[in-house]
Design a protein around this nucleic acid. Sequence first.
DNA 1: CATGAATGAGTCTTCATTCAT
DNA 2: GATGAATGAAGACTCATTCAT
Lengths: 201, 201, 201, 201
Amino acid sequence: MSPRPVDKEEKKKLIVNAALQVIKAKGFADATVEEIATAAKIGKGTVYEYFSSKEEIVQKLVSDFFSGQEKRFKEFKFDSEKPEEAVKAFLRESFFDIETLSDIIPIHFEFWSSGKGKALGLNKSMSERFERMAVRLNQFLREGRKQKVFLDSLDTKNLSTVIISSIDGLILSHALFKPRKEVFQKKVNELEKMILSYIRR
Amino acid sequence: MSPRPVDKEEKKKLIVNAALQVIKAKGFADATVEEIATAAKIGKGTVYEYFSSKEEIVQKLVSDFFSGQEKRFKEFKFDSEKPEEAVKAFLRESFFDIETLSDIIPIHFEFWSSGKGKALGLNKSMSERFERMAVRLNQFLREGRKQKVFLDSLDTKNLSTVIISSIDGLILSHALFKPRKEVFQKKVNELEKMILSYIRR
Amino acid sequence: MSPRPVDKEEKKKLIVNAALQVIKAKGFADATVEEIATAAKIGKGTVYEYFSSKEEIVQKLVSDFFSGQEKRFKEFKFDSEKPEEAVKAFLRESFFDIETLSDIIPIHFEFWSSGKGKALGLNKSMSERFERMAVRLNQFLREGRKQKVFLDSLDTKNLSTVIISSIDGLILSHALFKPRKEVFQKKVNELEKMILSYIRR
Amino acid sequence: MSPRPVDKEEKKKLIVNAALQVIKAKGFADATVEEIATAAKIGKGTVYEYFSSKEEIVQKLVSDFFSGQEKRFKEFKFDSEKPEEAVKAFLRESFFDIETLSDIIPIHFEFWSSGKGKALGLNKSMSERFERMAVRLNQFLREGRKQKVFLDSLDTKNLSTVIISSIDGLILSHALFKPRKEVFQKKVNELEKMILSYIRR
DNA sequence: CATGAATGAGTCTTCATTCAT
DNA sequence: GATGAATGAAGACTCATTCAT
């Protein structure tokens, strides 16, 4: 009935992707709406048909990515029968799509660092992500402890936050130095070994 | 005959400190030179007597902090007779003045994330810091291995970068969530335990 | 679908004309972009949609005028059968639209005098104009000499530059003192007489 | 009695000369007081002990030069017995110190063109100079006409202004194109010949 | 729906001038 | 007298956002 109904969500994605490309190259503050529009091959005004501000684009960009991650984490089947495997799988998941993540991270940071982060509730969403991941990991650690595969003495709660931080540290180093795949994988493996050697009985 | 001479370096510090306060609150992009000047209780024009641009202020702010850190690292006496103690001391040093570090980090990131980072050579200085720390830590790990205190099987080079990343992850979490001192210390301790348990024979 | 398309060239002219009025009154250095915009009844930002700097406006203002002059010179039919008439016509052409020329000259000079002239290649364009005029006039003088209407002894090349300079001197005096039409015409006539009496057999 | 009485006039000259050098290179608008002070090897504040504004320096620079010229013109002995010689001498005088004149002219113009010219009464002083020269030259022309060396038919008043303008045109071309001495001299000679051929019986 | 012309609030930066020493 | 540190008025320019077509 309505003529050529534009898929709003599709177009938003188009814009968000264009924004990612431009912002990746110049940073958020230096990326202009015009450049984003041009990259998306649409008019500047059109951007405002889909987003009410430049910041909103980034908000969607970042939250889309993290909710995608979130979703994958939820859907992922961790076998609670084998806690060690679960931890390994958790680590693998954490570094999934590290390339895109490395593009998002700097943008995320620029926002968080600037006053805008607070305005957009980024701080909250970051701490929530951290919290959720820590809680999830904590489950595996406790499960493993219960199953006597992991040490009894583990302060699983504290440890899980430390591990999440270590993961973030590795992600950050990837964002910073863009190492080659194998090089990075070696680091991930090393971290995994270190963690497992620490928690295993 | 001459007007009162001014301690230029002192005044630069005054401005840098004012800038830190303002930028901490609003981020670099949203902090105006006028606000910085007002915070420093000087006129807007005076800022430009000491710095030739807004960016230069941050450059000094960040580089001063890191060169201070660098210096402390250099002066610090690590006892190579006791590799384990050296590693512990290294960790302690890494988290020294974590409060200030947590103020600097977001600023550092905003710069790195935005195009400005490249202009100011921040990327390079960041990777150099990382590199230097990794090299230093590597020395201790190798020494420990040589002294048969640490495992023979250690890939010390790879491991040291992983540890530095973990340290950075913890620093980052501090910057993000500003945990209480004891809470953070517990995390640091946990990381230390994990590392030592991994490297020790 | 699309917003009203604008005749870019027309709008540039609008701005250039507004600029001429403002700069005529206050000089280039003291004319603000805001004043120019106001005179053009547009917003300050709009000026920058059409020109990328204040200087560019003047560049167009000046170059438009001179290329117009150039064009008129090119199109003008000098009857080479009658060299004396050609010289007269040349003089007439030189003082064509002296009123506008008198507005442009000071602006031109302010640019040339300030460092900006070099930046904008005004120096070059000025000397080229001089050169072209001299070459043109030289043709007539030589033609006249060939046809035995002008003196054999004429150093036509040198003379033509002197005549162009005299023309410029008269233009300058007009720009400076804004004499009434008849008064100025008398001067032009006098110059013409002097020149002709000098070159005629 | 007074301790080391500074020769005010001498110091003003020092500043004016420094200003000339700086302004020659960058134009008035782009020359800063600081640069002038530095060029004069004095402090910025000291400039204001001798001049109450940047403009005043230029005012003195220009007026000093022209009053010097004026003075030389006055002192110069034109032999009214030989009107032709007088005219020749007048021309010679006009181009005296053409090098310095070529430095002053652009500055003069930048002022005249900008709003400042009016403020400083430059227009008036320029027209007075023009007027005085024209009057002077007119005397010689009339004298020559009276002595029957020059044509009866001369409209000496009008002609003298045209000649002054031609002189100015040649000066201007020198300022613009900085020709070599001999080249310029040839032009002056040509102008002289043209004028004389026109006025002589 | 799409667009891009128009806009002006907001900033950095410059520099003539002042004035305490 | 001499100085240069301090200042803020002033101005060029950017760009997110609006809105008429």
